[in-house]
Design a protein around this nucleic acid. Structure first.
Lengths: 191, 191, 191, 191
DNA sequence: TATGAATGAGGCTTCATTCAT
DNA sequence: AATGAATGAAGCCTCATTCAT
């Protein structure tokens, strides 16, 4: 008989928003942004087409929201709690975290790759991508400086290459890619 | 005014086919498969929409044809003329060829990545992909064995990772990626 | 804390109804019926979408209600208090009232014109329109007879033409239309 | 067996374009711009929805094209062949042309009114409207000057008022509006 | 072989309306 | 009485594909 309280509405919105983002994340990651229609998305999320637009202004905006969420999760990965000087030990922990994250969040990384490799999508997310890549690069540069590399920027590029390669190979064939062996192999490089 | 011979017709067809494939390759690689319409493609290739369907049964078929061509070009890269035992020197030449190829055929590699990140397309091209990757993997395994690695398969996975990473990073930002430094860095690993 | 009386409820309802009609009148008149959504309307009126439907069965019904109100206000304009015989002096007063009304109720007249130019709406409001135009026409006919016109019906048509023209031109560009000069010009016709 | 010639294509395009504009003119004029959907329009014109967009970039563009055509037809009305000084005789001919035009092109004038009275449509056609009204106003001003009015601009406003009124009343009820009597009545004003 | 007009399915989006609270 | 989440029909538009010439 009474209207819902603001708090109730807030909860509904937050939960439904998550529900949509999760559904879209899975669809986009596994089938590609353009290949998934709003209709399919709504069906998959268990809501009506119209409701999508109650939560996201457009399909593009939905993609941006997903990307922001993906990036925020990933940034936590790259956000070291310890402020201590990075060293070999730190790097090992860092890689550990990274590989574990990859294993347990494969969908996020698929999304990440899908986004990065589709020019049309890149266009949409240009700004967000630039902003998101700043932090990890900074961290890696700190490691490289601490490890005494003469050309830290080049070493960062190499590290990025390694990491991109790992992601790419792993999500292409998670069953067969020897993730652990690769981790050891990489660690050996920085001993 | 004399009627063309069958051979001439065949040549015309073949040349026009190439013309279309080249145009489509450039469009798809730079803007993405879904973002390019048949209309735009026809304009870009300098022919009419209708004629496209004279050469390719559908847009999907066109994509498959392009991918086959891309793969055939890449296989040449991985087809060593010299049958000599692989060693450090050979590896250096191999990497040289690889990096040069990447530099001068960036469009092909963009296409290659684009295909890999489109699940729907992957499905269609599964077999071609598998077949195409056989040869390079074999070659790399030979190198690894020759270099005395205890676990050659793991080292091959690492090499693949490196190469995927290089492709990915390079095509993402060709202007700024230090391709040559990365090549040296990789060679240092195998000295 | 005492429960409201029925009368209070009634007053609240009536006042809220007015609030909605006023808001809708302004929106429709300035931006057009189709261009204004119920959502915008509710925002503008400071209530929720749902409540709109508590007061009006549909958007069309709302329009009808507005038009009825517009017509009732206009009928007052054409309802002369004085029953004295119409003459030149009366006509002047009549036009005065008319022009002043136009100036101070431009929104009502915009609405009136908007309705007339929407065939779909005309259909809905056919009867209301006919009924509403009876009175002014009657008054004008009386004037014409009193002024001694041989063909009073034709002169009424001419007067209607003048008035429609004034409305049309004035609401099209209220800033620049010389309303007062036009009034004088018309009065000169009937001296 | 041969493709059509450019000329043939040109003819097809021109004729189909007309067909669409005519259909749209009738629909918009009688039922209103917003009330007519592209689907209905296509049906009415006897073509597919898609083809509409082969000829007009959008519904708005179609409206603009129609308005341009309407205006071009009307401008001919206001474009006197004779360059002689305007006088009473000229004015009579001018009004003659005007009233006849109204009678035989009622749809055009309905369209004109529909456009002018719908704010949303005005918005779309802002520029075109301004441009189109320049010429007739200029002509009327010349008449007024020639007729010796002290305040020609005011008299132009009065004439515009008359003409708008005539259009408005006539298209509202063509059957019963005494067009000829009104013409005489107006002429009497300028004897 | 070659053209581009024509089609129609399907995409994204809006919005009047309903309904649980 | 009041709210806004939820629905789904319908709108505009795109585009792969067909077809007459």
């Amino acid at each position: 008989m009474c209207p819902r309280t603001d708090k109730q509405f807030e909860e509904i919105r937050e939960s439904k928003r998550s529900q949509i983002i999760d559904a879209a994340l899975e669809c986009f990651a596994t089938r590609g942004y353009h290949a998934v229609s709003i209709s399919e998305l709504a069906d998959f999320a268990g809501i009506s087409k119209g409701l999508m637009y109650n939560y996201f202004k457009s399909k593009d905006e939905l993609l941006k929201s997903i990307f922001k969420q993906v990036m925020s999760v990933m940034l936590q990965l790259f956000d070291p709690d310890k402020k201590g000087l990075p060293g070999k030990e730190e790097l090992e922990k860092y890689l550990d975290r990274y590989f574990n994250h990859l294993k347990s969040n494969i969908i996020l990384w698929k999304m990440y790759m899908a986004v990065f490799s589709q020019p049309a999508v890149q266009e949409i997310l240009k700004d967000e991508i630039l902003e998101a890549s700043r932090k990890p690069l900074e961290i890696m540069e700190n490691y490289c400086k601490a490890l005494g590399y003469k050309d830290p920027k080049a070493e960062v590029a190499f590290m990025s290459t390694l990491m991109s390669g790992v992601i790419f190979e792993y999500i292409s064939d998670p069953e067969n890619y020897p993730l652990d062996k690769i981790k050891k192999r990489i660690l050996k490089l920085y001993q």
